[in-house]
Design a protein around this nucleic acid. Structure first.
Lengths: 192, 192
DNA sequence: TTTCTATTATACCGTTCGGTATACAACCTG
DNA sequence: CAGGTTGTATACCGAACGGTATAATAGAAA
């Protein structure tokens, strides 16, 4: 069972560094010091490795997101908690977060994009609902909930990308003040 | 010579749809109704096709950007003109713009990323200089010019991504008012 | 001890990969 | 016409691709 985890780890590092399509199955198993049938025993296919990787990580994220949204509070508080969850998730495994972003922006007909799409869509829907549930605060959104959700994720992702440039060694964690400032910036955009 | 352009067009469409690594040379030439030696005659290699594609398009963009920045005006005007150039460039060839974005977010050790990197870097430097030249307006930026540049491109790209969701058929062009609103939103972030 | 299951390796499959040696047209130039 | 250049196709290269049939190994269970 430990070889299974080892394969996932090696695959993640290679996918992150070179991109899904540019990595061969041979390369993954060589890095892990194993052979192909072992990988196929655990994951069935190359895309199976990526899917398992995504599923495992998203299961963690899903729990954190639910906890963040179950609490009482206004839209501002919910967005703050959500952003904090994303930041901590990012800090915990930068490589995976960056890989996720690369996959999200990759070609629509690509196998790897199709693998991550349902998960991204699921989280979009969650965020769309956050805005919908806040209609008493935000007034008539004219169906722009989806646009807000895209904007929110875009803003957070963009912040984390910039953060990578500023603190490449990941010396300190993202402070609550920074997250608050991020949310304020986003909210201003909506209310203006 | 027309086959050269045909190959570039077919390659662009395939790279956009499936991703650089997932497209084979065979696939490109089949789509163009030609054979491999023709492609290799014009471009020398698969990565040569991508490089030619990028270079051709960026040459156009470079001219427009220079025109936008040569004019007199404050930082707000320069950013506005810059954003307008990007929007028109996006409208003129959405497929290429989206391909460029996908490449930009792709894995750092990937051939395709390395191909686009110098061009993206060049435009970053141009925008960093825009902020530097506006130091009399913006005051002490504490070396955050680069962060501003990343933020500016991120904001524009994100806007265009959302725009694709709102107007997938590209029925109408992005209005001057929309661009102004985009710039205002970005400027507020800086001054606050 | 025997048997079963889980895990791993050897060695191979057919296909596709990026790339090329060669030759043959078509064309312009003299 | 002759000769060079440009452009294109046939047919092939070795290597790598994703994937698998088969068997050996190990440990637990009986």
């Amino acid at each position: 069972m430990e070889n299974r985890a080892l394969l996932l780890q090696c695959a993640k590092e290679l996918f992150y560094a070179k991109g899904y399509d540019a990595v061969g199955v041979q390369e993954i198993v060589e890095k892990a010091g194993l052979t192909k049938p072992t990988l196929y025993y655990y994951f069935g296919s190359k895309i199976g490795v990526l899917k398992t990787l995504i599923e495992t990580k998203f299961d963690e994220l899903r729990i954190s997101v639910q906890e963040a949204l179950d609490s009482e509070g206004d839209i501002r508080k919910h967005l703050y908690c959500l952003a904090e969850v994303y930041c901590r998730f990012f800090e915990q495994d930068r490589e995976f977060y960056m890989l996720m972003m690369a996959l999200f922006y990759s070609a629509r007909e690509n196998e790897a994009y199709k693998a991550i799409r349902p998960y991204v869509a699921e989280f979009y829907e969650t965020i769309v609902k956050v805005f919908e549930n806040a209609s008493h605060e935000l007034g008539n959104m004219n169906g722009r909930q989806r646009q807000f959700a895209v904007g929110f994720i875009g803003t957070v992702n963009h912040y984390l990308l910039v953060h990578c440039e500023i603190d490449p060694e990941q010396k300190e964690e993202i402070s609550k003040e920074q997250i608050t400032s991020l949310i304020n910036q986003f909210m201003y955009g909506i209310f203006s």
